[in-house]
Design a protein around this nucleic acid. Structure first.
Length: 491
RNA sequence: GAGCCAUUAGCUCAGUCGGUAGAGCACCUGACUUUUAAUCAGGGCGUCCCGCGUUCGAAUCGCGGAUGGCUCACCA
């Protein structure tokens, strides 16, 4: 087999690497070696140097830079813990062994057997006694100093981004820690982790357009779930006391710095509880994770200090609107609300509903001001079809949304457990659907049936994991916290 | 979906008035046995995002398209 083939289609840099590959084969060396058992990681050698000096070690990783000096050379080897310097000397490797360096490229993955020592300049290093090619790299890496900056390439070729931009790995390590931390937090409090279907016959539990797919054997269309809510509450009917699920949701909507078509949410439900329990747990989870990650409940996001220390203030939506817009929307009907909105310079559809105008007021006047954590509560019943009405005002619900740095980071409420009210709410949603609102709920007869068996009063909460990770990793774009964010295919 | 901006060597970027493309890193050749953005000498590398047009001549101007970024709209 001629590994230096296809020369016409390769640029010079790749041709050179193919030639070296062929040279290795000619020398009887497998450039794509086998299992290599390391004894230390780079970080272990650096941390444990005092006890390891002059010891033999086996380490593996990728060559990230080389400095050759005639009969002695230096290279940096990177593994998942960090970098360590390699020192090659013709005296220790012999003429033949040392000559192999000519076949070495930045990006090659090596298995090194060597001796741990410190150079004259003080750098902890490994003097190479034997090197094995574990994988020859046939493509050049981006430049050592500037790395890979082109965000398009960074997302499309995340593997390269991860190799050359060390901060990227940290973000995803933090993401993993956050999810682990959330799991143990909930599990420690008696929450039981479950998995519910992602293929739904009825896409319910949120107001969003679903993705549609098709089951061939059953010859039926199915939806990718927009929320796990209705299944999790069926489990409360079934007798589970506290449940949670962490998983992907799919919503067929726009892509932005805060939206990806698939995103991760944690939903949890507490039987015999209510919204106030959920607000408490929201604050506690955020504070707990902050404490674990940075050892403080104060964090910095994009240069702003955010104080996550509980308790967070709570403010009814209508109070917040009055505070920031100066307008009291309480008790208005649809047309009065439209009139007030026009006076404040908002764009309103000619037949906009009161609840929609409320939403618009909130988005324009309130949201941009919500930097520090705050719970906005008491949403109108029309936009909260699964939440229980407030006892003292049946047009509002016992619902809350926490905001941090102007983002809605979660959504929770006291769950509606009255099957008759629920059925009426669904009917209203279906009516809106018929009027062209394709984000309104569909009727879910089986869910009503489940409620008819009796669901305990309960609090429920959904936390957006991606936004939480953005906040804790100081990432301004959701794409920075997704390993492989959605991209249009490149032609 | 709309507006604005970007796309030039493997990577990071220059490119003046429209005159036919440059730097650094990386790469190749040589020197160098403790360097670390190693150094020194020499070298080569381009679908200037794609297509059409204007022009004697287009990386540069015009039109259309692709991809990305930001803002807005929808949403978590």
């Amino acid at each position: 087999m001629d590994y230096a083939d296809d020369r016409d289609e390769l640029n010079e840099l790749m041709q050179v690497r193919r030639d070296k590959l062929q040279d290795l084969y000619d020398l009887g060396i497998d450039p794509f070696g086998e299992k290599f058992e390391r004894t230390h990681t780079a970080q272990e050698i650096i941390d444990g140097f005092d006890n390891l000096e002059n010891e033999e070690t086996k380490i593996s990783g990728r060559i990230m830079s080389m400095r050759t000096h005639g009969k002695a050379s230096f290279a940096d080897l990177m593994d998942h813990t960090g970098r360590i310097q390699l020192y090659f000397r013709v005296n220790s490797l012999g003429e033949e062994g040392y000559a192999l360096l000519q076949k070495l490229d930045i990006g090659d993955i090596l298995g090194i057997t060597g001796k741990i020592f410190r150079t004259r300049r003080g750098e902890i290093s490994v003097e190479v006694l034997d090197l094995k090619f574990l994988s020859k790299s046939l493509r050049p890496l981006p430049e050592k100093w500037h790395g890979l900056k082109d965000v398009d390439l960074r997302y499309r070729q995340r593997y390269v981004d991860l190799i050359v931009n060390p901060g990227v790995r940290e973000v995803f390590e933090t993401r993993s820690k956050i999810i682990q931390s959330m799991r143990s937090f909930l599990s420690d409090r008696g929450y039981f982790e479950v998995e519910t279907p992602t293929l739904h016959v009825i896409a319910g539990g949120a107001s969003a357009r679903p993705f549609t797919t098709h089951h061939n054997a059953l010859d039926m269309d199915l939806y990718l779930r927009i929320a796990p809510e209705l299944y999790l509450k069926r489990l409360l009917v079934g007798g589970f006391d506290r449940v949670f699920e962490i998983g992907k949701m799919f919503r067929n909507e726009g892509i932005s710095t805060k939206h990806n078509p698939e995103f991760t949410m944690c939903e949890l439900y507490m039987a015999y509880g209510d919204a106030s329990d959920m607000m408490k747990i929201t604050e506690e989870i955020y504070a707990h994770i902050a404490q674990e990650l940075v050892g403080s409940t104060k964090i910095v996001f994009q240069g702003q200090e955010i104080d996550l220390t509980p308790p967070w203030p709570r403010k009814p939506m209508l109070d917040a609107i009055e505070e920031y817009s100066g307008v009291d929307l309480r008790g208005l009907d649809d047309s009065q609300a439209r009139q007030v909105a026009k006076e404040k310079g908002l764009q309103v559809e000619p037949n906009a509903l009161y609840s929609q105008i409320l939403d618009e007021f909130f988005d324009v006047f309130v949201e941009p001001n919500l930097i520090q954590p705050i719970f906005i509560t008491d949403h109108p019943v029309e936009v909260s079809p699964l939440a229980k009405r407030k006892k003292d005002n049946p047009s509002l619900t016992d619902r809350f949304e926490p905001f941090i740095v102007t983002w809605e980071v979660a959504n929770g409420f006291t769950e509606l457990n009255d099957p008759i009210d629920q059925e009426q709410r669904f009917r209203q949603q279906v009516a809106q659907r018929d009027l062209g609102d394709d984000e309104a709920h569909m009727m879910d007869e089986d869910y009503i049936r489940a409620l008819e068996h009796g669901m305990p009063p309960a609090g429920g909460l959904g936390i957006g994991i991606d936004r939480m990770v953005m906040l804790f990793t100081d990432s301004p774009s959701i794409r920075d916290v997704l390993l492989f964010p959605h991209m249009r295919p490149r032609s």
